[in-house]
Design a protein around this nucleic acid. Structure first.
Length: 509
RNA sequence: CGGGGCGUAGCGCAGUCUGGCUAGCGCGCUUCGUUCGGGACGAAGAGGUCGGAGGUUCGAAUCCUCUCGCCCCGACCA
């Protein structure tokens, strides 16, 4: 009994084997599974509705900042990718290439590719080049600017090593691509969208992030500047959760996006691109899930409340179900975050414990158990996923306070994640301390260790490379937020040279 | 792509080194009965070309060759 009570729904626990725990959560929460296609996942309904909610809210934020949606081709002619030198270098190694247009039966009746294309097509790994080629036609005059377009799409990057949600060969994302008349305006756009991402991560996903610049070595291929949001996962590694790139005139030049300014001079435009992907779901899992499975933040929850009817026999069943349906109706009339609260009655023919644990593993914010006893007392028995609290409430009070309760859960998740990050982020001033911080005690089976190290850095790529080679630790970003990370100069502990400000070092996904 | 681990029922595994009855176990599934407020118990069932293709052998899950896939670590990346 005691042994059973102490058992967690997910095995192994986070502290035992974090990567395996992650996979077990994805499976137990019914979020996604591997497909017959190498490196490509099937996103299951519960996981996909998380993505739908991410889309819904982000899309509204894009629209609110003046953007519109469009759609560009899945295929990019090889010659387009070749136009921007750094861009090719960055993506060539992971391109899926279409070379034929049909299948034909050979002498053995096997289907073989036939109809070789004159020019191979690349399945988009990102769309700067194809969209740039289109923008070149759209832009003639300064009056055509800015162009503020986003697309929701899938992209393919043939990665060697894949992990569900975090890195898959095909993934879903959005990519914003904008064109501006001036560098200042494009830079402002880059920053604005980064702030949208940070806002979304913190206030919708309840995942605190650090905004910052990438160093030159971590920059997007072809970008002048890459801004990012970095989040800390529960194994204390960093997850790059979103990026916003200032592309300067690089792509405008390679794609020939030119316009005449007010003075009649022909100029290259300034472009940006920015994106987040289904990786965000992986971030949510690794930020909030625990040893009993997923924990979904209420603002993005596919469903907020499940009602679990408890009864012994058919006679009770009718009474209890009727009560549950009435309760459901009252809950549906309540609103949270501007929308009706999502609730269902789970009347599947399963054992009570199984059903309950199934919902716990999926991470639904609130479970409501309703049995004959509760009905007699006018109460409901409520289980809260984030804290594990279980308590009985008068039925009507429960219904009336639901919106507050959901917001409380949302706030608690963010507060908890912020505390975790604060507990595992620290300033480090010596090389020895730095190396100790990032070296596991047990080499054979490394324990969860390290975190975010705020450390001075002289700006040299050599120092960066050495640390990466020694510890597999990289500069996640040079923070942008001067309030949270004041730009105080100091000495780089690796080179002894001056440093303008501390940067964030961590191991990363 | 380099190093390591692994593919046997829906899931988790044993059996493989040392070839040999009809390929096993746990969970899950089906039916019946007893149960039922946090992962029930009993009984009876269903379910496998042992990842795939070749080869060796009287005989292959087991040995050999090739291949496909998954996981972990590394390099690369959202």
């Amino acid at each position: 009994m005691c042994a059973k009570a102490a058992k967690t729904a997910i095995s192994p626990r986070r502290d035992e084997d974090y990567p395996e725990w992650y996979q077990q959560v994805v499976k137990a929460a019914d979020l996604a599974e591997n497909s017959p296609v190498r490196g490509c996942m099937v996103i299951k309904p519960w996981g996909y509705s998380l993505w739908e909610n991410i889309q819904r809210d982000l899309d509204a934020m894009f629209k609110a900042t003046g953007h519109v949606n469009a759609y560009f081709p899945l295929f990019i002619p090889k010659s387009f990718i070749e136009k921007e030198a750094e861009h090719v270098d960055g993506f060539a190694k992971e391109c899926a290439v279409v070379t034929h247009s049909r299948l034909a039966a050979d002498e053995n009746g096997k289907l073989v590719p036939a109809g070789e294309l004159e020019e191979p097509l690349i399945v988009r790994p990102t769309s700067e080049t194809i969209i740039g080629a289109t923008y070149a036609k759209w832009v003639q005059s300064y009056r055509d600017l800015p162009i503020l377009v986003n697309q929701w799409a899938n992209v393919v990057r043939w990665e060697m090593r894949t992990r569900l949600f975090l890195r898959t060969a095909e993934f879903l994302w959005q990519e914003g691509h904008t064109v501006h008349a001036t560098a200042e305006e494009a830079e402002e756009e880059t920053r604005k969208m980064l702030d949208v991402y940070a806002d979304f991560a913190e206030n919708y996903m309840a995942m605190p992030v650090i905004r910052g610049h990438k160093t030159a070595s971590e920059r997007f291929p072809g970008a002048v500047d890459t801004l990012c949001i970095e989040a800390m996962m529960q194994d204390r590694k960093a997850l790059q959760a979103g990026t916003s790139h200032f592309l300067g005139q690089n792509f405008a030049k390679s794609c020939n996006i030119q316009f005449q300014n007010e003075a009649g001079q022909l100029q290259h435009a300034w472009t940006t691109s920015w994106g987040v992907s289904t990786r965000l779901i992986g971030g949510m899992i690794m930020t909030h899930a625990d040893d009993d499975g997923m924990v979904v933040p209420p603002r993005l929850a596919p469903q907020h409340v499940v009602i679990l009817p408890i009864y012994r026999d058919p006679a009770q069943r009718g009474e209890v179900l009727a009560y549950c349906e009435a309760l459901k109706k009252d809950i549906l009339a309540q609103r949270y975050d501007g929308r009706p609260i999502l609730v269902s009655v789970d009347d599947r023919d399963l054992r009570g414990g199984e059903k309950t644990w199934g919902w716990i593993k999926k991470g639904i914010p609130l479970r409501v158990e309703v049995g004959a006893r509760d009905i007699a007392e006018g109460k409901v028995f409520v289980g809260r996923r984030d804290t594990g609290e279980k308590a009985a409430f008068p039925r009507d009070e429960f219904v009336a306070t639901l919106p507050q309760k959901l917001q409380e859960i949302q706030d608690n998740l963010l507060a908890r994640a912020k505390k975790f990050r604060a507990d595992n982020m620290r300033e480090i001033n010596t090389k020895d301390e730095f190396y100790e911080f990032f070296t596991p005690k047990n080499k054979n089976k490394p324990e969860v260790h390290g975190g975010f190290a705020l450390c001075h850095w002289n700006g040299s790529a050599e120092v960066e490379a050495q640390i990466k080679a020694d510890l597999n630790v990289t500069i996640r970003c040079v923070p942008l937020d001067d309030t949270e990370f004041p730009p105080e100069p100091g000495i780089c502990p690796f080179s002894g040279e001056p440093s303008p400000r501390r940067v964030v070092f961590a191991k990363s996904y």
